[in-house]
Design a protein around this nucleic acid. Structure first.
Ligand SMILES: [Mn+2]
Ligand SMILES: [Mn+2]
Ligand SMILES: [Mn+2]
Ligand SMILES: [Mn+2]
Lengths: 226, 226
DNA sequence: ATCTCCTTTTTGATGGCTCAAAACCAGGGT
DNA sequence: ACCCTGGTTTTGAGCCATCAAAAAGGAGAT
């Protein structure tokens, strides 16, 4: 990995990593949709990344990150989350704005500065959304299951989606579903019904749709990081 | 000025601004040397900037910034100095490292973040080197004469060069010539001889060569900013 | 008025980023 | 087995950044 990866290469790695966690193989089409660019653009970037052995490209049937590719992708996510933390902790941005603003300039931050920033921020364990900041040089980030996958009795810590519009933010705020908040599942209604949660001493009901877009750190995972 | 200027365009504007303060017209050759690129590269960038009416290009005889060009150049310098302040105040970098590290990622910082950073840094009046941070949208920065232009009896505030190697930093430190330090010129030896200064209660002698690379904010300029 | 030399611009390449449209192919349907 | 079709890759194009080398121009010297 001689010369630094470009912005598009970084963003593509990130998307493939996220998309490929369960699937394994990821199709270029979904990446084009995800990143909002033309299909041919993805193919071009994929070729460069394959050249660098960060992924395997099976023409017409998808791509898959190599070990080195996963490491690079996780490094991008780490950097993104550190920059978000900077934006929220030092500049006072709300968590829904941090993601948007980190987006572009994170890719031009020298590694050296990233490292100092991490220390200056007091080695934060998670980004403003509640997602973990991985250690440097690892190839995996612990899986965060959706809130909806929990069962009654389960206790977990909330992580909310990165870029969200104001109305969603307001709704989540009203429910007390802020990053890093502890929740306990009280009831789960059948047939994709809503979830009843205890949040901060209050009983809250959230639809299946919402509960699929919120992610959680379960007790076991929580213990692991102590 | 629809779309944002690129890194090379920004750096070129900055160089032309500095070079053209007295000269007026700046030759592409000196810009090529200054930025360490091939002459043809400058011509290419110059053409784009001329297209945007940020400068006038007189083929074969030089370029000159327009009013809009000077405003853009000063904006670049403002941003650079704010980022330097961030690196020194928030991340603890020494002033000779701040310039180097600001260099690349400053050009990708969203305006919005620059503004917040400025506020978070408590609206600093100068960069870590002692150069003033201009207000937004002005087309000029007050001229900082070299220390060597002062006469015995003059009092001024020091600004030190941005990127300097460790030995120079060490020497200046030993002389007490740190950014924002007050000095009084005691003697000026004839025939380009050295300068004798009072710095922090100590008498210091600096060569003409050094005194030409250090810049000062004189009393009048100092009063202006109060 | 010419010539010569040094500087500047132009040209031709390469590589990144991106798009629209054309060519291509894998897998499902017939 | 064959064909369709929709997704994928290629192609052709434009913009930015940059270089080396060729062409062009300015300005002083003859
Ligand atoms: Mn990004
Ligand atoms: Mn985040
Ligand atoms: Mn710069
Ligand atoms: Mn500075």
């Amino acid at each position: 990995m001689r010369v630094a990866l470009s912005k598009s290469e970084n963003e593509l790695l990130k998307s493939i990593y996220r998309q490929g966690r369960d699937n394994g193989r990821v199709h270029t089409g979904v990446l084009a949709d995800l990143l909002g660019v033309a299909p041919g653009t993805i193919t071009a970037v994929v070729k460069r990344l394959a050249e660098r052995n960060l992924l395997d490209h099976n023409p017409y049937r998808g791509v898959e990150l190599t070990q080195a590719g996963r490491r690079a992708a996780v490094a991008v996510m780490r950097r993104h989350r550190i920059v978000e933390r900077f934006l929220s902790d030092m500049l006072g941005y709300a968590w829904n704005e941090a993601d948007r603003l980190a987006g572009s300039f994170e890719h031009h931050l020298p590694q050296e500065v990233e490292d100092r920033l991490y220390v200056a921020l007091d080695r934060p364990a998670s980004c403003p959304h509640g997602f973990p900041i991985p250690p440097p040089d690892v190839a995996e980030i612990p899986e965060m299951p959706p809130l909806y996958s929990l069962e009654p009795g389960d206790v977990a810590t909330i992580a909310v989606p990165g870029s969200t519009d104001a109305s969603v933010v307001e709704f989540l705020g009203a429910m007390g579903l802020r990053p890093s908040v502890r929740v306990e599942v009280k009831e789960k209604h059948p047939f994709d019904g809503p979830l009843v949660l205890e949040v901060d001493g209050h009983m809250r009901t959230v639809s299946e749709k919402v509960a699929r877009q919120i992610f959680v750190k379960t007790e076991e995972l929580f213990e692991e990081r102590i």
